[in-house]
């Protein structure tokens, strides 16, 4: 099973819930802005904890309120590509990419640089990158950390139309090259369909 997620969290009096059990390697969470899609990713990454429920990814229990399991973020081996990218501003692209690298488990660096087309950016500072370049570096950094699963939070937001196709191709390539499960957040159903993902729609809770 790729994802077995059944969580509930209340934030600022607003409930966020998700139930999803699937073998699909690519799951797209879709729904309107503010419905809690990023909150779900943060729970899966361990940045916040659900109030109750469980999160099992690729057979490993990351959180279970019944048994008290709550793995620390650093131990979840998650590759998280944030919507705001979060490249480290004081480190060049090379150091950003190498930050989480686990040599024994990572994808080959040259391979990642080649298929993301970021080899020429290694000596640049993050603030000098365009939106598309920064997004590809963020994806590369996540892949090189040797993740057991990937979380992609609106990876095409704030990227111009020409660059979107390139990022979608890169995600397609990741799926073909690596068998790790991917949880993909978007508010654009067409984007999810383009990736042939299993679509899970989130709605506002009353």
């Amino acid at each position: 099973m790729s994802f077995d997620i059944d969580v509930k969290q209340t934030r600022s009096g607003r409930p966020i819930t998700l139930f999803c059990r699937t073998d699909s390697p690519l799951v797209a969470l879709v729904g309107p802005s503010g419905v809690g899609k990023t909150s779900i990713l943060n729970m899966v990454a361990g940045i916040t904890s659900p109030d109750q429920g469980h999160i099992i990814v690729a057979g490993q229990t990351l959180f279970d309120s019944d048994t008290g399991i709550d793995l620390k973020t650093a131990r979840r081996q998650v590759g998280y590509v944030f919507q705001d990218r979060r490249l480290f501003p004081h480190l060049r692209v090379r150091a950003n990419l190498a930050y989480g690298r686990r040599a024994a488990m990572s994808m080959d660096m040259d391979d990642v640089l080649a298929f993301l087309g970021i080899g020429h950016l290694l000596d640049r500072w993050p603030h000098s990158l365009s939106g598309g370049e920064a997004q590809r570096v963020a994806i590369g950094r996540a892949l090189l950390s040797g993740p057991r699963f990937l979380l992609l939070d609106e990876p095409l937001s704030s990227i111009d139309r020409d660059r979107k196709a390139g990022i979608l191709d890169a995600i397609d390539q990741i799926r073909r090259r690596s068998p790790i499960p991917i949880l993909y957040v978007t508010h654009d159903v067409a984007e999810a369909e383009r990736l042939s993902a299993l679509i899970v729609t989130m709605h506002e809770e009353d």
Binding site: I47, A74, R75, R86, Y99
Partner: peptide, 11 residues
Amino acid sequence: RLESAAATLGA
């Protein structure tokens, strides 16, 4: 947020 990003990278 940069610190939580570093945590997701295993730091």
